[in-house]
Design a protein around this nucleic acid. Structure first.
Lengths: 165, 165
DNA sequence: TATTGTTATACTCTATAACTATA
DNA sequence: TATAGTTATAGAGTATAACAATA
């Protein structure tokens, strides 16, 4: 494993795989995740988004407007951390906080027209684009294998998620 | 992708895979890496080691005693960060700093007898143990596929590392 | 002049606890 | 009493810049 949570780019251009660590699953898994995340964030940069607040944005796009707490529970982000993420998205105009009339303690974190337009004009396909480029070196069959293997490894005990077989 | 770099355990026991994010390669990759790292760190806890300073320890075990800077370059850890990692390992008795007589600016970060004994009595097999448990749900064939696919994805451009075919 | 290790420092990310307003 | 959101704050983890000793 070696290094688990560090940036992927090597400023001086020295070899990316340290000797004797290259075959460690832990190292490879973390390394692959870091590489993909870095490519993803560089693609998101023009939109002013980090992978983190893109996640929140995409989540409400797919799952509908909802409270900060609800988003946080599903993405496992602490509600105090959610405050700042929503602040950023609101500052950039992607979302607004609208009071829930039925429970005035809550906000509905709501996509703005601008937010929806940005999503429809490319932002919602950034992930596919980055993933395709990341996977271009491996065959279609291996892509499917990779996803199905990862789902088996990541899924909670005793559950075989759809598509994992 | 959603959340990219957060802890894996869910304090309240709620579902581990958020809806509509389960098939994202980025999410799965990072999630798998986090799960494995968490299992790894819980196995290392009795030794007082984090995944990070275990990496340094294992690195000099495999590659020989060497300077902080040299270790840092190969594991891509800043030399100022290396200071603290070596401090911790030295405090726990795994390594000592010995001045390099040929270049008195450098230390040779050197395994102690205690460090070597700890490695030989289980520490050096922690990774295999954790990896085996992590992979127990998938077939031997899928394990090999996973490693070879990950190597293809992580290896620098134009290089096909040994074992990747 | 350049390099190794060190320190001081700052920045990011995150979680905890206490507060407010609502329920 | 409990819950949604907020704030202050503190703890990791890491990087940058400046420094001492050595080359």
């Amino acid at each position: 494993m070696g290094d688990m949570n560090r940036p992927d780019t090597n400023p001086d251009g020295s070899p990316t795989l340290p000797p004797n660590f290259a075959k460690s699953i832990g190292f490879l898994l973390n390394k692959a995740g870091q590489l993909l995340t870095a490519q993803f964030e560089s693609e998101l940069a023009p939109y002013g988004l980090s992978a983190r607040n893109w996640g929140v944005l995409r989540f409400i796009d797919v799952n509908g407007n909802q409270s900060q707490q609800s988003i946080g529970e599903q993405l496992r982000i602490d509600r105090s951390t959610m405050v700042n993420l929503v602040d950023e998205l609101e500052r950039m105009g992607y979302v607004v906080r609208l009071r829930d009339p039925h429970d005035r303690r809550r906000y509905a974190v709501t996509l703005t027209e601008y937010g929806r337009r940005q999503l429809r004009s490319g932002l919602d396909s950034v992930e596919d684009k980055v993933t395709d480029r990341f996977l271009e070196r491996i065959s279609e069959q291996d892509r499917e294998r990779l996803v199905s293997i990862l789902i088996s490894l990541v899924a909670p005990d005793g559950i075989t998620p759809p598509g994992a077989g």
